[in-house]
Computed example of a mutant assay.
Amino acid sequence: MRYVVFDFDGTLADTSEAFMYAWNKLADKYRYKKIKLEQIETIKKLNMKERSVLLNFPLYKIPFVMPELIKLYKDSVVDITLFPGVKSLLEKLNKTGYKIAIISSNSEGNIKNALKRNHADHLITDVISAKRIFGKDKTIDQFLKIKKLQASEMIYIGDEIRDIIACKKSNVKIVWVEWGYDGLDVVKSAEPDYMVKKPDEILEIVKKR
């Protein structure tokens, strides 16, 4: 095992309020339904189709609104914090000798700014933005090729069903974290290789591989 690769939003960082702010700005502009803070836990239990119905948002528009959503999100980056235990996990992985990277649908600039504000930027070797929200497997494949890695030499940590699907396509093992955007009811059918309830469990999984 050489690389431990993380998703960012919902895995390393609690960005739910930042994305709620950005989404509600879009909702005002395009007449979608707004998200209330108390709805977030309920939304985590819904799949993409159910979320689109709840928010009056056609799924086919995702590629068109994502750039604007990420740009609006940038305004809230100052308030983003890492989940409890995440920075300690990154420090332990780094100290043990693993290289740590991020592959995310968010922009490289947003991620680097948030890491810097949380004093964790020095722990990450690579930050890569996946250009397509549902094409993360292509980015993972490219990462493996550039780093000259076998699929068995990296593990991915993510929180959404699309992360699991992407890793299955790339033949990369994935750890699903329960504190992210997609709840267990949403992801269990995709059969992640590992499931964890707290960051320290990730370290134990990595050490055993």
Rank of each mutant, 00 (worst) to 15 (best):
S52Q: 01
I202W: 05
K61C: 03
K198D: 14
K131F: 14
I124A: 00
R2H: 15
E68R: 12
A114Q: 11
N47R: 09
A27W: 01
D163G: 08
K87T: 05
S189P: 06
Y32H: 08
Y21N: 10
T11K: 08
R162T: 03
K95R: 13
S152T: 13
E204L: 09
E204Y: 05
I124H: 11
Y181K: 08
F8G: 01
M20F: 00
D7K: 02
F19M: 03
F143I: 03
N94R: 09
I205V: 04
F6I: 05
P58E: 02
D141Y: 10
Y73I: 07
Y21W: 11
V187C: 10
Y98C: 02
A166V: 01
I140G: 04
F57G: 03
Y98W: 01
R162H: 00
V53A: 11
I174W: 08
L89K: 01
A120T: 00
D137Y: 12
K45A: 13
F134C: 01
T11C: 05
K33C: 04
L115T: 05
M48N: 15
D141M: 10
I35C: 00
W23D: 00
L89Y: 05
E91F: 02
D200H: 12
I202S: 02
I100D: 11
P192A: 04
Y32S: 04
E38T: 09
G10K: 06
A114P: 10
K169A: 12
K169V: 10
N171E: 11
E91R: 09
N171V: 07
S129P: 05
M66K: 10
S105A: 07
K138H: 13
P63C: 04
E17M: 09
C167F: 09
A13V: 07
I62F: 09
Y30C: 04
K92T: 08
P63W: 11
T81D: 15
N94F: 13
I174G: 06
A101Y: 08
A114D: 03
I174S: 09
I165V: 12
F8S: 07
F134L: 15
E191L: 09
A114M: 08
N94D: 15
E160A: 11
